[in-house]
Simulated assay, not measured.
Amino acid sequence: MQITATTVSLTVDDVAASQRFFTEHLGYSEQAAAEGFASLTRPDAAADIVLLARGIEILPPEQRDQRASGLILAFTLTGIEGEEKRLRDAGVQITMPLREEPWGERLFQVTDPNGVIVQFVEWVAPAIQVGDWVTSAAE
């Protein structure tokens, strides 16, 4: 098997609202679209996104009334402070401010108009404590 791309499919109430959010703020472009459907892509390593309208017949009957929930769409990047500032300046609500976890993960979150949580992550060397000294694992 050779995987040539990764795509995440999200079921939402308003395809156009999520499509605008991902294209205007996150650099995606439309690859294909039809009633209740949009396929979005980026030229880098980010996963492609398919947006499907809740209730669309292409979904299995037991999934047609579900929405994307309990899901975090996470993107790993560099320059996380600049990205948070760019999104904030563009009027995107930061739903989890930038923070750093003890294991070396720096992250913040935004939420699209359909409630899809998008998390941005940058990895740094975690601080470790040896005796009375605190140092970076990269040192």
Rank of each mutant, 00 (worst) to 15 (best):
L59S: 06
P60M: 10
P61M: 09
P61I: 08
E62K: 11
E62H: 13
E62C: 01
Q63D: 12
Q63T: 07
R64N: 04
R64I: 09
R64Y: 05
D65E: 15
D65P: 03
D65F: 06
Q66R: 14
Q66D: 12
Q66Y: 03
A68D: 02
A68H: 11
A68Y: 05
S69M: 06
L71Y: 08
I72K: 09
I72G: 00
I72H: 00
I72F: 00
L73D: 02
F75H: 14
T76V: 13
T76W: 01
T76L: 07
L77F: 02
L77I: 15
L77R: 08
T78F: 03
G79E: 10
G79W: 02
I80A: 07
E81N: 03
E81S: 07
E81F: 00
G82K: 00
G82Q: 04
E83I: 02
E84S: 01
K85E: 12
K85V: 05
K85C: 01
K85F: 01
R86G: 02
R86H: 00
R86P: 01
L87A: 04
L87S: 06
L87H: 06
L87V: 03
L87G: 05
L87N: 07
R88S: 14
D89K: 10
A90F: 07
A90L: 12
A90D: 12
G91H: 10
G91W: 10
G91N: 06
G91M: 03
G91T: 05
V92A: 07
V92Y: 08
V92G: 07
Q93E: 15
Q93I: 10
I94K: 02
T95Q: 07
T95F: 03
T95Y: 09
P97D: 13
P97R: 10
P97W: 00
L98A: 09
L98F: 10
L98G: 04
L98Y: 08
R99Y: 06
R99Q: 15
E101V: 06
P102S: 14
P102F: 14
P102V: 12
W103A: 09
W103D: 02
W103N: 12
W103H: 14
W103V: 04
G104D: 09
G104W: 03
E105D: 14
E105C: 11
E105S: 12
